[in-house]
C-alpha cells in the first residue's frame, strides 16, 4: 500500500500467475498451439504409410472454393483440392467435379463424391460402357453370399449382383478371393488395412466404416443359424 497500489504485495504475484493461467486455459480451449499435421501440409503417403510433406490447400473460402449444387451438396474446385497445381496452364481444360457430379443422385455427406453410384447406374443417370473391344463378353452373377462368422455383429451379405454390374469376375477371382465359399477368413483389420474388400471399399466404393451396409443380416431372422 505504501507504493499506492490497491493490492497487497503478496497478492500481486498471484495476480500475474492467475492471468497467465487464464491465458493458457483460453489457448487450450480455442486450440492454439495445436499442430494439425494435415493442415500443416503433411499427408499420409499411401505407399510408405508415413507422414510426408504435401502442398497444402489454401484456407477454405466457401464462395471462392466450393461449387454448390441445387440440393445443398458441394464440391471443391480443382485448383484448391490440395492435389491440382493451379499454375498448370492446362488446369482450366479439366472438368470440375461439380459439373458432372451435381447431376447424379446422392446425399450430402455421403462418402464417395456425394454420389450414390449404384443408384446412379441403376436409375440410368450414367450409362457407362461395359466393354471396349467388341468381342469381349462381360460375365455376371447375381447370387448372394451370407458370411455367418461375424461374432457379435449382424451377418454379412455379399451381393454378387451389385458388384458384377461394375466389375468382371477376374477382378476379384482368384485374387484376392478364391472362388469357393469359406475359403478365406476375412477380418476387419485386413479390410481396414486395404486388403480383400478394402481394396475398393474406402477408396472408390463406400468405406468400411459404414458398418451396417455389409453387416446387414440379423441372426435368427430367416436363417437357421
Amino acid at each position: 500500500m505504501a507504493d499506492g497500489s490497491p493490492w497487497p504485495a503478496r497478492w500481486r504475484r498471484w495476480k500475474l500467475r492467475f492471468a497467465l493461467l487464464a491465458i493458457a486455459l483460453a489457448m487450450v480451449v480455442t486450440g492454439w498451439g495445436h499442430v494439425d499435421l494435415n493442415a500443416q501440409g503433411y499427408r499420409r503417403g499411401d505407399v510408405s504409410g508415413e507422414m510426408v510433406p504435401f502442398a497444402p490447400a489454401r484456407p477454405l473460402k466457401p464462395k471462392r472454393d466450393l461449387i454448390r449444387g441445387k440440393d445443398g451438396r458441394f464440391w471443391r474446385r480443382l485448383v484448391n483440392d490440395g492435389l491440382h497445381d493451379k499454375y498448370n496452364p492446362d488446369v482450366g481444360k479439366l472438368r470440375e467435379p461439380a459439373q458432372t457430379l451435381s447431376k447424379l443422385p446422392g446425399k450430402r455427406d455421403e462418402i464417395g463424391n456425394n454420389v450414390d453410384w449404384v443408384a446412379a447406374l441403376r436409375r440410368g443417370y450414367i450409362m457407362p460402357k461395359d466393354r471396349l473391344k467388341p468381342g469381349d463378353k462381360p460375365e455376371t452373377r447375381s447370387t448372394d453370399i451370407i458370411m455367418p462368422r461375424t461374432a457379435a455383429m449382424p451377418m454379412v451379405r455379399f451381393p454378387h449382383g451389385a458388384h458384377s454390374e461394375w466389375l468382371d469376375c477376374s477382378n476379384c477371382h482368384d485374387q484376392p478371393f478364391k472362388k469357393e465359399a469359406g475359403a478365406h477368413r476375412i477380418n476387419m483389420e485386413d479390410i481396414l488395412a486395404g486388403e480383400f474388400c478394402g481394396r475398393c471399399h474406402g477408396s472408390v466404393a463406400f468405406p468400411a466404416t459404414d458398418c451396417l451396409r455389409c453387416h446387414s443380416v440379423e441372426r435368427n431372422v430367416g436363417t437357421a443359424n
Binding site: 457407362p128 466393354r131 468382371d168
Partner: peptide, 18 residues
C-alpha cells in the same frame, strides 16, 4: 480421377480389359 471415368466406363473395362 476415378469419379469421371466411372461415369463413362465400368470398372471392368480398365481393370480387366486394359
Amino acid at each position: 480421377p476415378h469419379w469421371y471415368h466411372r461415369t463413362v466406363y465400368k470398372c471392368r473395362v480398365c481393370h480387366a480389359e486394359l
